[in-house]
Amino acid sequence: MTDNQDIQERTLTFAVRVVKLCRFLHEKGGIERILSSQLIRSGTSIGANVREAQSGQSDRDFLHKMEIALKEARETEYWLIVLVESGGINENKVKSLTQEIDVIIRILVTITKNVKKKLRTPNP
């Protein structure tokens, strides 16, 4: 399995898990409902940008979309931390999501670094 296939599958599965978590948070009401709105936007946007990158018109276009996915992943990680640190949700309830977003971020960093390297290498 290539990194691109792996990241597509991971981000789709991650997005579904974020949707389920946000349903739970939405039902809690209060500040958790507001934070869930932020989390669902960024958490589902990662995979959408990864998918869009697969149809990139050039390596630069692909890189741009993957960098957006990386930014969204980092934002998602942030909202998960805010939810835990503010007491909105128990850390154990989101531990596997936190671990998965860390893996997704590492994969996206690797992909973007490799594309940047490819773009810097002159074609013979």
Rank of each mutant, 00 (worst) to 15 (best):
G30Q: 08
G43P: 01
I107E: 04
T121Q: 11
E72A: 06
I107F: 02
L25V: 03
V19C: 07
I107Y: 02
Q5A: 12
E75M: 09
G29H: 09
T98P: 00
T112E: 01
I40V: 15
E72K: 01
E75T: 07
L97S: 08
A69F: 06
Q99E: 15
D6E: 13
V115K: 08
N123I: 14
Q54G: 07
E52T: 07
I7L: 02
S96A: 13
D61H: 03
I107R: 05
I104M: 05
F24M: 08
K93D: 13
K95E: 09
K113T: 12
L70G: 05
P122G: 03
R23M: 07
R120W: 06
K116A: 08
R51W: 07
N123T: 14
E100H: 08
K20P: 05
I40C: 01
I89M: 08
N4P: 05
K71Q: 11
G56N: 07
R10Q: 05
K71Y: 12
A73P: 02
E72G: 04
N49L: 02
D59T: 05
T76F: 05
R41V: 04
C22E: 02
Q38C: 04
K95H: 06
L108H: 08
A48K: 10
P122D: 06
N4C: 10
F14S: 00
E52S: 06
L21A: 05
I104R: 02
R106E: 10
L70N: 08
V50K: 03
W79M: 04
Q5N: 12
L83N: 05
R51A: 14
N4Q: 13
H26E: 11
I107S: 02
L83R: 03
L70A: 10
C22Y: 02
T44S: 07
E100W: 10
T11W: 04
P124W: 05
R23N: 11
V50G: 00
T13D: 11
G43Q: 01
K20W: 09
Y78S: 06
D102G: 14
I46F: 08
S96I: 15
E9K: 15
V50C: 05
L108F: 07
F24I: 07
K65F: 03
Q38M: 00
G56K: 06
Q57A: 12
E91Y: 15
T44Q: 03
T2A: 10
N123C: 07
S55A: 15
S55E: 15
I104H: 01
I7N: 00
I101A: 00
R106N: 12
I68A: 04
K20G: 05
N114Q: 13
E100V: 09
